[in-house]
């Protein structure tokens, strides 16, 4: 379980980026974080990934306070999380296969395991035929599928998707959201940060709404209301 307990993050004193936010996410849950740009969505995600430290409060993952994890154990913690970014962050000089395989290499997996798992996960995202394509040869939707495959390959407990449809047209947006729902149905917790109204309204899942760093709404089957 992920738990944010009265978390505050202040960059500039006159305007906290996150202001006394508390919520929890159960294992296997699909939760959307919505809000305008600058509402604190990305800061919350960075706090969870321990890219940032809170000014006050605690971020828990299970029994562990994320910000008390020793540096040497941080890689181990991050291997439990898969990240999907708006700008994909694919390595341009690697093929789709290599971009996904790279994560397993970093984790020290054997070549034969890498080959088997990468093809399996490319199959899940529907890119088994594009494995040898470089990012510049793929469409936006396909790049995001590679990014999702990369986030899945090490079988994380949680997938965090930060504006994954921000650069996509409506057709590909629908496609990517459907993929995230499918991953969630397979048992992985998904946290989706977005400001795409249509996506949220069609999902019918839990929605946390942020405004000026404050959590103003938490609904089980929420809608985008800003």
């Amino acid at each position: 379980m992920i738990l944010f307990k009265e978390v505050t993050k202040i960059y500039a004193p006159e305007r906290p980026a996150v202001d006394n936010v508390s919520f929890g996410v159960e294992p296997g849950e699909f939760t959307s974080l919505v809000g305008k740009s600058g509402s604190g969505k990305t800061t919350l995600l960075k706090l969870f990934l321990r890219e940032e430290f809170p000014t006050a409060g605690q971020v828990m993952f299970g029994e562990q306070n994320v910000h008390e994890i020793p540096d040497v154990r941080l890689p181990e913690f991050r291997r439990k999380v898969g990240m999907v970014f708006q700008d994909y962050k694919l390595l341009q000089y690697k093929t789709a296969y290599e971009n996904v395989a790279y994560v397993m290499e970093v984790m020290g997996a054997k070549e034969e395991d890498i080959e088997r798992d990468v093809m399996e996960v490319l199959d899940i995202v529907g890119l088994e035929d594009q494995a040898e394509q470089y990012p510049y040869q793929l469409s936006g939707g396909e790049k995001q599928r590679v990014a999702i495959a990369r986030s899945l390959i090490h079988r994380p407990d949680i997938i965090i998707a930060d504006e994954p449809t921000g650069n996509l047209d409506p057709y590909h947006t629908k496609d990517i959201v459907a993929l995230l729902v499918k991953i969630n149905e397979l048992g992985t917790t998904v946290i989706l940060a977005t400001h795409n109204k249509d996506v949220i309204n069609k999902l019918g899942k839990r929605v946390l709404t942020l405004e000026d760093g404050k959590l103003i709404r938490d609904e089980k089957r929420g809608r985008f209301m800003l």
Binding site: L74, M83, K89, V106, H154
Partner: peptide
């Protein structure tokens, strides 16, 4: 820098 960011986020060790 992108590669390093991805490596950090997927849990690569310092020396990797």
């Amino acid at each position: 820098r992108d590669e390093v960011e991805v490596m950090r986020l997927v849990g690569a060790g310092n020396w990797y």
